[in-house]
Design a protein around this nucleic acid. Structure first.
Lengths: 211, 211, 211, 211
DNA sequence: GACTAATCGAGACGGTACGTCGCGTCTTACA
DNA sequence: TGTAAGACGCGACGTACCGTCTCGATTAGTC
């Protein structure tokens, strides 16, 4: 976004909710644009069509605005699938995750968040919290199928391979994050981490399941 | 670094090589410090104890200084091992790669490079080139053992899992890049990508070893 | 003054007279303080402990408030004496005028008025009107004794010498406006403007009196 | 003035004298215009066509610029006449003084100085110093003719009547400061302050001189 | 005695000006 | 000729203040 909005009506001595939303929306909009340089409060104010003092009144730093803006979006809610099969759960989760991250509405925001994290400690903390939440989700999924994993497998390593790949491709941009990638990645992780599956277990979801 | 250096003697009408090195060293030093904000030429000049005009005369942008500074370091030269065994080659390569990246002298520079890449397009291009070179090295290693890989394996996916993990942990900092990580990662990749290995090979490291 | 006042009770849909007086009193109080910067409506409102909108509702500019505030004071009413003697009338008038201007309650207000007149055209107009009134009073006094004045005397010059001295000393502050000044000034003016006085008149106050 | 000037060439690491003069000239120019509000450094910088930082580098406050700007003008050098005659000296001095103050090039600057003095303590101090110098000049002139003055005459009172009249008319603007005013004022002061002159002295200028 | 009407204190809001900070250009003085 | 030094114009940042606007509380008049 980054363009100005129409004027808003005052709300008297109460805080103007419309203004608040305009600021948060403009912030996410600016995060999308790589063109705009550092995310500063005056730039946010201008993009939101809001007085500078209004932004400074409610937020101290760009990081605070960012935190609230992204929280407002209830961003990237990837539900954890639960089909009973590790293979299927993982494949679905990765498909959803990669598709969500690569979506045109999301990818620029994630890139913008990383860009800000490289510049602003508050944004970096925000990014750390955000990624920790995502890692926990995937770790939970894997641990639900602990019986299918080798006993000494390093779950965190598996998790970081997934999100490492995701951010690496997202930021470098040399390769896609498509459905095929998700499928192959899921298979590879299962092959790397899993004990040889029992036939009957495998047969329930596996491609080679007995007919 | 980031601190001032002692004065250097003029060299008259010849370009002062000591000054050049001071600038490049100060640049790498600044890259290490997350404290310092954006890497700009005046900051570099001040850190090198050098006149601003001297820096502007020889380099146009911070990206150019960065390029020359990192090239000067011949940084992160990880030789590709060649033992004849995929498992061994991969394990050694990953151990060297992760150890090199996590080394106290290197990690802050890589983080600094990523930080600058988030801000400066030239630095981003530099980072893209650098990572492409590294990916090519690992891809070459894997392709040397193409007979050990499943015919339809996605080599790029394997490569990106490695460097994705590396950068992800390097930048988020939530988990280490130690030797154990390298070993487990190597095993996982082989398990994911490899055809069934010869027994004697597998038995040396494989989870199913030892009856 | 310039400090806040205690809260006042509402008077419903009638204009609150107490508020009006608080505003006017605060205005005069602020005029006294050279510390306070320009006299603006928000500053007046704050000093009066009154909502800004209340001030803006009843007055448009600081000049309007000032006009009403000074009119309220019916300030500096110097009655014109009439003893029949030019010397006595003039001496008494000047004593009263200088004493009034130099009084601790008045001098800071006059200085403040001059200060505002240097900034606000409305205040300047107010000051011009005020000074014109004062000049007219003194001119009237002198013209009542036209027979004692030389026929070609410039009455306006005499008047401006008086008020010029007054404002000059008031604003620069390098010399007092005391009773002795008034007496000597009166004598000087009579000497400068008067025809030779009747002996008995002169002998009453003149330097050559004493007998 | 108040308009922008053409760009100036840099002078390297030496202070740019052309810039300095541009700032001082613009300051006096702004002082002339009553339109321009308070004399602030950014306004001066804009009027001089100079970067703000350049003004802030060399002067801390508008008062400092003002001091230097007026000193640069070597302003209002009224040479003290010395003809041997009180009447003549005084008349000439007052004519020069009033003519100088009322001159189109000077009057607006004096008014501007008074305007700033009403707002800025540094400018007020400058005005006090300036007026003190002028008073001393006139007092010196009068004291040179102490034998012509009554022994108990208040010289300061005479001086302040002169400058009081000058500033009063200059600022209120209700009456002119012309040659006739100067002549009449001089006569009045001599009449007020002088002992009865010897006949031959009086006859030279006095209106009632026998002859 | 409820309802309307208008005042009052409070503070959010958009806009503007101020003083600071940093970048990149330019010119000098010196080696 | 190259280097250190620093003045300079420009623009962004964060703060302060002005005048407008709306809100909720309070009280005076009206039916």
């Amino acid at each position: 976004m980054g363009s100005e909005a129409e004027p808003r009506a005052h709300t008297g001595r109460r805080r103007n909710e419309a203004t608040r939303h305009a600021v948060l929306a403009a912030t996410v909009g600016l995060l999308r644009d790589a063109e705009h340089g550092p995310l500063t409060l005056p730039v946010i104010a201008a993009a939101a069509g809001v007085g500078r003092q209004t932004v400074y009144r409610w937020w101290s730093t760009p990081g605070e605005v960012l935190l609230e803006a992204l929280a407002e979006q209830a961003s990237a809610q990837v539900p954890t699938p639960d089909t009973g099969s590790l293979d299927a759960d993982l494949r679905v989760f990765l498909e959803r995750t990669l598709r969500g991250a690569a979506a045109p509405a999301t990818a620029p925001v994630l890139r913008g968040l990383a860009r800000e994290a490289a510049r602003d400690e508050q944004a970096a903390e925000l990014l750390r919290t955000f990624t920790a939440t995502r890692r926990a989700a995937l770790r939970g999924l894997l641990l639900r199928h602990a019986d299918r994993l080798a006993p000494d497998v390093d779950v965190d390593l598996l998790v970081d391979q997934v999100y490492g790949l995701l951010w690496y491709r997202l930021l470098i941009g040399h390769a896609p994050l498509d459905e095929d990638t998700a499928r192959r990645l899921a298979e590879g992780l299962v092959a790397a981490a899993g004990v040889a599956p029992s036939d009957w277990t495998r047969s329930s979801t596996g491609p080679a399941g007995g007919g």
